[in-house]
Computed example of a mutant assay.
Amino acid sequence: MDERNNVCIMIREAVLSGASKDRACDFLGYDIRTIQRWDKNQKGDKRKGRSDIPRNALSTEEKQEIISCCCDERFVNMTPNEIVPTLAGEGLYIGSESTFYRVLKENDLLHHRSETKPRTARHHPKALEAKGPEQVWSWDITYISSLIKGQYYYLYLIEDVWSRMITGWKIHYEESADYAAKMMSDIGKTTDLTGLYLHSDNGSPMKGATMLSTLQRLQVMPSFSRPSVSNDNPYSESLFKTMKYHVSYPQHFETIEKARVWVSNFVDWYNNIHLHSGISYVTPSQRHEGKDKVILQARAATYEMAKGKNPERWSKSCKKWEWKESVFLNPTRCKKEELKVA
């Protein structure tokens, strides 16, 4: 009860200071509905629970029999899923597998005992917010097919999450943390990367010692997706799809030099010609250089002028060419709900 009251007090103080209740709850790791229930009921949980004992409940002796059976030398290295059918084959039934597991859990006898590494909890990656260029970058590696079956070239590609501009790329014969570190070092020679977040998946080139030490030297903060969760790195995945489904993509490249020439042309088209749907149909370079505001304002004015000339053709308001101030990478659940409402 003391911890519950302290949490409620901290959230009230945060709200009085100007913070939103959703963000305060999310910061402390509580669902807002839980806090609302606690605020409504200050005296704690008044539920009395079940007073009677079910007629089919296991007796103390039966529970002890299950524990003794599981701790028997014969079954000590077997799971309930193995113990129950073994006993049934001998004409003995003590309880179901779920009953065995429940009794073992009640007596603190369910622990990882194998030599294999226990399952690790995978937490949602930190939510990153970009309010301008060169604050949050996303990068990944994708394969490019050669003419020889089973032989690939590997494209290393970095994208600015806020502007969607491709800020760096390289093509090599293999995936390597050394190549990734060299790419970041080359970018660091012309761009101040201090305080930048660099998000990627959990591949060995991303988490290699050479890459991580280079990021530390450049004062770049690494961020990683959960294993096997491609949705944690959506911007890079979307960019690769745009590239590989481009009308000029050849599917196979004769040499690595030709692959580099094609990617160079694609990067120029993507940054300077492609009207990106995620940033209100301006080019990534226009947004990166801060020219998109003027362009969107001009479009809005054109729409208003057209509506003024023929208002009967407009059943609703004009399309809103909104400038997006913030772009989020892996937002929290509360932030996702706010973005949907907006």
Rank of each mutant, 00 (worst) to 15 (best):
L239I: 01
R226D: 06
K293V: 08
K40G: 14
E134I: 15
E13L: 03
S96W: 01
H274W: 08
S317I: 14
L92A: 00
L215A: 01
E106V: 10
G195A: 05
Q36N: 15
Y154H: 13
L157P: 09
V136T: 10
H199F: 04
E304H: 10
P331C: 03
D160E: 10
L16G: 04
K46M: 04
D26Y: 11
A298G: 00
D22C: 13
D2I: 10
K43L: 09
I53W: 14
A180R: 09
S98T: 03
M183D: 07
A88N: 08
F224T: 00
K21V: 14
S163R: 03
I279C: 03
G150E: 10
V220E: 00
K48Y: 10
Q216I: 00
E115C: 02
E129S: 03
S185P: 00
G29C: 06
V327L: 00
D26S: 14
G203Y: 12
S248K: 14
T302G: 09
K126E: 05
T86N: 06
Q297I: 09
T214L: 00
L155N: 02
E3W: 06
V341R: 13
T99D: 00
S176P: 15
V294R: 11
G203R: 09
I53F: 15
Y153L: 06
T242N: 12
E289H: 11
M221H: 03
V294A: 12
M206W: 12
M243G: 08
I295S: 02
K126G: 00
L155I: 01
F266P: 06
L16I: 03
A298P: 00
R33T: 11
T79E: 04
V15R: 05
F27C: 11
K40H: 14
K40D: 13
L218A: 02
V294I: 13
Y154T: 11
I144T: 05
E304F: 12
Y235C: 01
H276E: 02
Y270L: 08
H123P: 02
H288I: 08
S315E: 08
F240H: 06
V103N: 05
A180V: 14
G203S: 11
T120R: 15
L104Y: 08
L339M: 11
R164Q: 10
N6E: 15
M206D: 08
S228K: 12
V76Q: 05
T283M: 10
L215E: 02
H274I: 04
W314L: 08
F224Y: 04
E159M: 10
V247S: 14
W38A: 01
S285C: 15
G203E: 09
T120W: 14
G44V: 11
H111F: 08
C334I: 15
K170F: 01
T99A: 02
A177C: 10
T194Y: 09
T116V: 15
Y235M: 02
H199G: 03
L28R: 04
L329C: 09
